[in-house]
Amino acid sequence: MGIIKAKNLIYNYIKRDEEEKVEEVNEAVKDVSLDIEAGQFVAVLGHNGSGKSTLAKHMNALLLPSEGTVWIGGMDTKDDDSLLEVRRTAGMVFQNPDNQIIASVVEEDVGFGPENMGVPTDEIWRRVDECLKAVGMTAYRRSSPDRLSGGQKQRVAIAGVMAMEPKCIVLDEPTAMLDPNGRREVIRTVRELNKKKGITVILITHYMEEVIHADRIYVMDEGEIAMEGTPEEIFGRVDELKALRLDVPQVTELAHGLRKKGVPLSPCILDVEELVGELVGIRKQRTAQ
């Protein structure tokens, strides 16, 4: 079993009227099964309202399945006794940078999780030092979060989760409210944590260019997993992605357009060097003929 596993997960948002009678049932997640191996970088893509955030909240026991089961590190999230253990195995970073920083000083915020877990003072300091360094925010440790940019705030939030020493970190649209520079900062940080520290990463987003380096991609639509595979497999299906309200990076779109016009390019091109290399090669062949 992988670090995160879901089997036939169903989640219904139930809207009740004043008399507690069920007025409307909204199936946010319908029958999702997945198995994520430790150490992987996994991306969950999907348009707004596709159910991806609801799925994410199950990985931290913030929501419990209506039907089916979710296991985090082998623990069933429905088991009350392992609640805190589940939350420190899979840490979570949210969308709005302002609404997840609790303390008024950066370093104190990073120490918040360990404080809650009852970690001894000296150990808290060691973890705070290490995690601030890992996200490159040591210089700001005594700053007020209000003075930081959006990207910096999210890095502090990531450090705050890292200080709990989780095996896995779930990021629920961490870049949706950031500018392009902030987005790059956050993604670079997350990729480094994945590579250097071997932390399992689950990145939820609708920005395609953030997931081209993922090991595996799940595409959600209407509460279900609509597509699944490596970036090369997923990005090769440009038209399908567009039908799911998504988009591909310009380089992929350009290659896709050229292929349609008969240029013999590989089915899925994800970066500029790849496209340039192939086009130069094609031209050499043509001129040689």
């Binding site: 931290n60 913030l62 805190l84 939350r87 420190r88 840490g91 979570m92 949210f94 709005n96 609404n99 997840q100 609790i102 918040f112 999780g113 809650n116 877990m117 705050g160 989760v161 709990m164």
Partner: peptide, 12 residues
């Protein structure tokens, strides 16, 4: 949002 974030960081 904040309540959720605190809960996720094991606040109890």
């Amino acid at each position: 949002d904040l309540a959720l974030a605190m809960e996720a960081r094991c606040y109890h």
